[in-house]
Amino acid sequence: MLAYAARRLLVSLALVWVVATLVFMVIHIIPGDPAELLLAQGGVAPDPWLVTDLREKLGLDQPLMTQYWTYLGGLAQGNFGYSLLDDHSVADEIALRLPRTLELVGAAALIALLFGLPLGVLAALRAGEALDRLLSSLAALALSVPVFVVGTLIILVLAQNLRLVPAGGYIAFATDPLRHLGLLLMPAITIAVGLGAVVLRVTRGSVLEVLERDHVRAAQARGVSVAAIIRRHVVRNALTPVVTVVALHLGALLGGTVLVEFVFNWPGVSGYLVRSVESRDYPEVMGIVLVISSIFVLLNFLVDLLYAVIDPRVRHG
């Protein structure tokens, strides 16, 4: 088990390095002078003075390998560079905002699993009945509504029309825990709708598939009660594909925070990214993409560990 974990961790760290290198390379892979690209506005050639200035600021006048080593060296010291707009440290900005984004993601995942898993099992056990058809249709619908549409509609109905909740914003937990959680709930639910639908559908399909396996029939032949069969032989065996699919959707989940933070004015790192992209503040964009992508890679590492916890064959393999 430890060897397995160590191996997976090594792979993940290597991937984080790949991600860092790629983020560095993107600006050089795309054809054209990066500084000119960043300054271009609707096809108008930028002021050559500004270009030279920006090139110097980003260190683009240095040889490529020097740039790369400076960049990696900076990362190792937790230095992500400085904003082009206001010269703030990107690392400081991320450190301030990242916890808020992670809190949002965590809450969303929790809500999605809390509803998706049991409802998925229920739908499978009632396959073909009215309840299953209702749940499956709702899930299909939820999967098709874009996350920013969910958010916008929630604000339109609950905040604008019914005035039940505030339209968004943020209050620090330390200031007012209750209102903090209240403000967290809407964006978290918005993200959870799609993810929960995914969990429900995969759980339903997986449970139905496991129900047909030989070992379930064998347990039945031993006289084990239906409840015990569901608990011991079905649900646990059905989890592996659920984990796989949730892992596949982690990327969409993290990407979804960009839109949801924007919609709800949640001051996390993702919503901030939109502002940086708008002002084409490249060091900030690089820093945020790098951090979130690294978190994505490490989350996938945790998923690999989860496989091993669920399935002894992975542990020994």
């Binding site: 795309i30 960009v258 839109l259 990214l273």
Partner: peptide, 20 residues
């Protein structure tokens, strides 16, 4: 598969920053 190391939305934003 290296592309899959990035959440899709973020990689898209990275490219948009450069290309507009």
């Amino acid at each position: 598969e290296i592309v899959l190391c990035f959440p899709p939305m973020l990689l898209a934003l990275l490219v948009v920053t450069l290309l507009g």
